[in-house]
Design a protein around this nucleic acid. Structure first.
Length: 753
DNA sequence: AAGGCAAATGTTTTT
DNA sequence: CATTTGCCTT
């Protein structure tokens, strides 16, 4: 029995290894834990919190733990509670956005918000930007709304408001800034906050309100952060301020698994932590409990190619395990067929399909795999695509509910004013919009005005009136109803259900099912504690109002729908093969893992392979993929692949070469297919080039798949040709410049080794 | 207001 | 190639 003081803490420390135990029971105020893949990262966090609560007798109210997803937050709270056998409602465990949102709801006034501010998800945000761009008369082709959204979110991730951005004189900067400004104004006018805004406001709340900051600084003595390598600038700044000089901070992360640089994550925050907390204790967790020695060795060797790592080498007490298998497929169909064959063998040997996963770089690759799986009737679960609360029909239903909370919710009005269609066309809507603009009022008010003051044709006025009356009717009918009854009533009486019913077809059936699922979700929404804790300042006052039939309850449901978009699939299907991108595989593990499409241009992706930081992030992604595998790893690549319609030749990914040969076995099919050009053998792969056997271009020294250099376009691969000799035209896919047709006699191509 | 057709577009994703 | 989008017709 391990005692701490007079407390028996063996249940917290017993199951841990030495470094894990050091982290969990560390007396240091600040801790940086560099935790390799599969080294028990979450476990250390969970046990550390348990340690604080029990051994150090910390109050649950003094603990704030941050994760990246709601799922991770739920899991963490659950694990702490099951470890200690009780629940701790005073503890804050959540995502950055969840926690920041909670602060803003409590301190809306100090944060400069209206009390019933609405959350914009990225879809709402994009629609708003489109509307703004239209009113600013911005050329949609030149400045796509998507790009503007990217810009705005990028600035917010860096903690920058429009007013803070120094303006440059080029077209791009000027236009983006103009849009950003207009967007900020629109959000403020409408009482809307997007995801980035939640973080930004929460940070400003600290800066502008010393008394509030000091309250939370005194409260949260223990701050714990998971996936620290994925924090962006504003998130770290927020943490930094909260930590102040006195609070204890434990951050856990793995610089080698940072794969979200493209959306603002900063690995440098790890170094910054060392600067900000120079006395912090640094611990490494390198013992891996997941994979075989061979898999770990492959991962270690691969990631060693990255510069500037903090340095970590995974090891295991387990055996070597099976070698990694490499398959060179003829094309993507062959690849899919190969994978499915192996999956069938695996399942036939008595294994569970759900212990296997196929990982790929981009979602488009799933199609071929799905086809192949469908053909042999093997169940699969595919991650990706629209999450539950992001689906069209769900968002529409939620918009009706939002109007019950506030009629002035323009986002909701825009969405459903004519869904289902009720004769309010583009022209009418435009009139209402401009009225709203000139009167500086909400769309709802503009609708009322336009009807009362007969700005509209009789027909249009009728349609608008019908909309206004419908919402009012729904509202009064819902007044006394419970949340799930409200939801049900809205779906049935808004016309949405009939709308989808008469639509017909497979898609519509799924939509109706989703709407039914929404009612279930509403009746499951009973997490009252979350809301009540939001209002710790005045619990007696608000708790009473917070009944399942209250407006506040509905608003809380809508908030959670916005902040936690739910799962991709309604229910976990039973034993099924898991298909997902490498990004979504982070944090998961499988006995058997396939990494498909290991080809230059696809993985590393061509958009990321031009600069070192992009390439290194791709390599980390590969590292993440490899370390998902517990027992057996297959890598595959195709010689040719159909991409955007035409067939391109592919070279094996450099990442394959970066794994030592002795860890890899190349699989060859027993029955070789005669019309396939002979494959380069293993030697050629090691040399990193394709040789022999390929189709030669007549009367030239070139052949398909050959690597060449061009004076202007740089290096590339020959994809196709027409004609022969000096007059031949060749299609070259340049690494940087893309695919071009060139006449040989003019192009002066240099043949590369 | 709905359906049809041409044009555009095609990394990764959470909140 | 396949899917989504926006524009144009009815």
């Amino acid at each position: 029995m391990i005692e701490y003081g007079s407390m028996d803490v063996s249940h917290i420390l017993d199951s841990l290894n030495e470094p894990q135990r050091n982290a969990v029971a560390s007396p240091a105020s600040n801790l940086l834990v560099l935790a390799g893949a599969g080294s028990g990262k979450t476990r250390v966090l969970v046990h550390r919190i348990a340690w604080l609560l029990q051994a150090e007798q910390a109050s649950p109210f003094s603990i704030l733990a941050v994760t990246f997803t709601n799922k991770a937050a739920r899991e963490m709270r659950g694990r702490i509670e099951s470890l200690l056998g009780q629940s701790f409602s005073g503890m804050w465990v959540g995502t950055f956005h969840g926690l920041a949102h909670r602060l803003l709801r409590s301190h809306w006034r100090e944060a400069g918000l209206v009390q019933d501010f609405q959350i914009l998800d990225s879809d709402d945000q994009l629609r708003l930007i489109k509307r703004i761009n239209r009113s600013l008369q911005i050329d949609e082709d030149k400045w796509p709304a998507k790009q503007c959204q990217w810009y705005i979110n990028g600035q917010k991730d860096e903690g920058l408001r429009a007013a803070n951005i120094e303006h440059f004189d080029d077209d791009y900067s000027k236009t983006m800034l103009e849009i950003y400004q207009a967007y900020e104004q629109a959000c403020n006018r409408g009482g809307m906050v997007d995801f980035g805004e939640i973080l930004l406001r929460a940070h400003e709340l600290w800066l502008h309100n010393p008394q509030i900051l000091s309250h939370y600084q005194k409260r949260f003595r223990h701050i714990l952060v998971d996936e620290f390598q994925d924090t962006n600038a504003i998130q770290y700044a927020w943490l930094r301020v909260l930590a102040g000089t006195d609070n204890q901070m434990m951050v856990v992360g793995d610089d080698d698994q940072s794969i979200y640089g493209w959306r603002g994550a900063r690995i440098e925050n790890i170094q910054q932590f060392n600067v900000d907390f120079p006395e912090a204790e640094i611990l490494r967790l390198e013992q891996n409990y997941r994979s075989t020695a061979i898999i770990l060795q492959a991962a270690n060797k691969l990631i060693a190619n990255n510069q500037g790592r903090l340095g970590k080498t995974l090891w295991t007490e387990d055996g070597e395990g099976e070698t990694i298998s490499l398959y060179e497929a003829f094309n993507e169909q062959d690849e899919a067929r190969f994978i499915v064959d192996r999956l069938q063998d695996w399942f036939g040997a008595g294994n569970r399909r759900s212990d296997s996963a196929v990982l790929y770089r981009s979602n488009a690759q799933s199609r071929e795999l799905e086809d192949a799986l469908l053909r042999v009737d093997m169940p699969y679960r595919i991650y990706g695509g629209h999450r539950f609360y992001e689906r069209l029909e769900i968002k529409n239903a939620l918009s009706y509910l939002r109007l019950l909370v506030s009629r002035d919710d323009d986002t909701a009005v825009e969405r459903i004013i004519n869904v289902p269609t009720r004769g309010i066309g583009g022209r009418t809507l435009e009139l209402v919009r401009s009225l709203a603009r000139s009167e500086n009022c909400s769309l709802w008010q503009a609708c009322v005005k336009s009807v009362n003051e007969s700005h509209l044709s009789a027909r249009a006025a009728n349609a608008v009136l019908a909309f206004l009356e419908l919402i009012d009717e729904l509202d009064s009918a819902c007044k006394q109803l419970q949340l799930h009854e409200k939801t049900e009533h809205i779906i049935a009486n808004s016309g949405l259900l009939q709308h989808h019913e008469k639509e017909g077809g497979e898609k519509a059936r799924a939509r109706i099912e989703n709407l039914e699922e929404l009612v279930t979700a509403a009746s499951n929404f009973d997490d009252v504690t979350i809301y009540v804790e939001n209002h710790e300042q005045a619990p007696s006052e608000t708790a009473a109002e917070f009944e399942p039939d209250s407006k506040a309850f509905l608003a809380a449901f809508l908030d959670q729908a916005a902040l936690d978009a739910g799962d991709t699939q309604a229910q976990e299907s039973d034993d099924a093969v898991q298909l997902m991108t490498l990004h979504s595989a982070k944090g998961l593990e499988f006995e058997l893992v396939f990494m498909a499409g290991m080809e230059e241009g696809l993985f590393p992706h061509k958009m990321s392979m031009n600069n070192i930081s992009g390439l290194e992030e791709e390599r980390r992604l590969c590292y993440v993929g490899i370390t998902r595998a517990k027992k057996k790893l297959y890598l595959s690549h195709a010689e040719s692949r159909r991409l955007h319609g035409d067939v391109i030749l592919c070279r094996p990914s450099r990442f394959i070469r970066e794994i030592p040969d002795e860890l890899v076995d190349e699989i060859r099919l027993k029955t070789s297919i005669s019309h396939i050009p002979s494959r380069p053998d293993r030697n050629s792969r090691s040399l990193g080039r394709r040789v022999g056997g390929d189709i030669e271009i007549p009367e030239t020294e070139l052949s398909l798949g050959q690597r060449v250099a061009h004076g202007k376009f740089g290096e590339g691969v020959i994809l196709n040709y027409e004609g022969q000799g000096p007059n031949a035209r060749v299609q070259v896919n340049f690494d940087a410049a893309g695919s071009k047709w060139l006449v040989l006699s003019y192009a002066k191509l240099e043949v590369l080794a």
